[in-house]
Amino acid sequence: MTRRPQKPRPRSLPSRKTRKPAKAVKRAKPAQRIKPGRRAKAAAAPLDDFIVAGASTLGLTIDKAWMPAVQSHLEVTLRHGASVMAFALPDEAEPAPVFKA
């Protein structure tokens, strides 16, 4: 049942059929730029909501003063997580700790 793991591919890459020709990509208008401060706020808000919801579900109380640090740590952890998730593995891949009776 072992299948060779595939090399990791960026998840954002569209399939060959839907990929735009190189020229079209070049000519495409750049996305509207958000000022750094605003971008941070925009990104932080959903993460803050996620933290509040997650903490509440787990019965954790997070003081308002702790939020920037918690958010910053979560961002870093999720960034590491994204790197792990971007690595393609077969469905049959076993996690490292496998229970043996």
């Binding site: 793991p5 996620f50 933290i51 997650g54 903490a55 787990l58 954790l60 997070i62 702790w66 918690v70 958010q71 740590h73 979560l74 952890t77 999720l78 997580g81 792990v84 998730m85 690595f87 593995l89 891949a93 076993e94 996690p95 490292a96 700790p97």
Partner: peptide, 21 residues
């Protein structure tokens, strides 16, 4: 630790699979 508590389980599972690979 508070940040770690709310990381989705799917990411952890994938990390353990990657670990074996």
């Amino acid at each position: 630790l508070l940040a770690g508590a709310i990381v989705p389980a799917a990411i952890v599972n994938r990390a353990q699979k990657f670990r074996r690979w």
